[in-house]
Nucleic acid binder design. Structure first.
Lengths: 169, 169
DNA sequence: TTTGCTGTATTCATTGACGTTACAATATTG
DNA sequence: CAATATTGTAACGTCAATGAATACAGCAAA
């Protein structure tokens, strides 16, 4: 079992928004092209990030921007935006037999430990900021060759654009 | 997203086997009654625990026993028996755009960190032995009232037993 | 030989992830 | 105001995993 890709997608989105905002319009088409998923997935995820107060999205005009300093956004914040933070890491089997010595006490024995595992993961995630990722990304960019930017069809998102249904027809 | 209940079921099974082995036959019916799941689920899980070298199962005669000292069985061992230990904690979105500065480097930025998160969880799990759980269970049992044991229908698993189809019919 | 159990195949229902189409609502621009 | 680009969201469809359940061949012991 794994956490869904929504988390890595959300991280990708935030990195891209941080990188391109101001240089070009970071629309769901643009971002979908970078992440390589359907724009609707981007819009949904972006909506969750907005609800969590991590980005602002321009309705109508389009494009997203960070709502907070990248130093103040941790992976835990991003995780909470797209996953249920209350949920335990492990799914416990329902209704262990209360008339059995083991069944009656398995929760007492395990619950605290399971919660600790989750808490430790939380700490790990909370220790990494978006700024840390940005720094590493910049380092990688210095190494590598020049890549596309604002001008190509891929960058502007021309590729995935819908054929508009003519409503006046 | 959560890990499946196979993990907590496996822990429950091992605790029950450790507790009741020698006192009564720890069959899949018996265990299924304690865990409160279908005996087939128990057999499957027991099979995985056997493959991992944690228990022995008596084919034909029935019943399971620990194959190792509870001090030598960690939660990580149990986890590995029922889950894919190679799998990362987070599912990464497929094919981020290699022509985009972010898409081309997102793996370089994230992979190491994601691996660390998984490794830390592993360490946490590896720090807890079955013996630790047994100790806590005994502590709970001392507190509590007396519960069922070997003689009741629930304990012997009479309840969930299949009606045998008479093959001689 | 009968009995009780394991091992395993198969079927089914449910759930969540993810993709996709469609379209109303919204903001900008000519 | 009208045309356009974009968001927000609903509605489906597909796929994979989980977990329940039935069935039965094979094994061991009495």
């Amino acid at each position: 079992m794994q956490f869904s890709s929504r988390f890595t997608i959300a991280v990708h989105i935030l990195l891209a928004v941080n990188e391109f905002d101001g240089q070009c319009k970071t629309t769901s088409f643009f971002l979908g092209n970078s992440v390589n998923v359907n724009p609707v997935i981007i819009r949904k995820t972006l909506g969750q990030l907005k609800d969590a107060g991590l980005v602002t999205v321009e309705a109508g005009v389009g494009g997203a921007s960070l709502a907070k300093d990248p130093k103040k956004i941790t992976l835990w914040d991003i995780f909470c935006a797209v996953e249920d933070k209350k949920e335990e890491l492990f799914h416990f089997h329902e209704n262990p037999n209360p008339d059995c010595p083991v069944g009656a006490n398995i929760h007492a024995v395990m619950d605290g430990r399971l919660r600790k595992f989750k808490r430790n993961l939380q700490k790990d995630l909370d220790d990494v900021t978006l700024q840390d990722l940005v720094k590493d990304l910049r380092k990688e960019l210095k190494k590598g060759r020049k890549l596309w930017f604002t001008s190509t069809p891929a960058a502007t998102g021309e590729i995935n654009k819908p054929k508009r249904t003519n409503t006046a027809e």
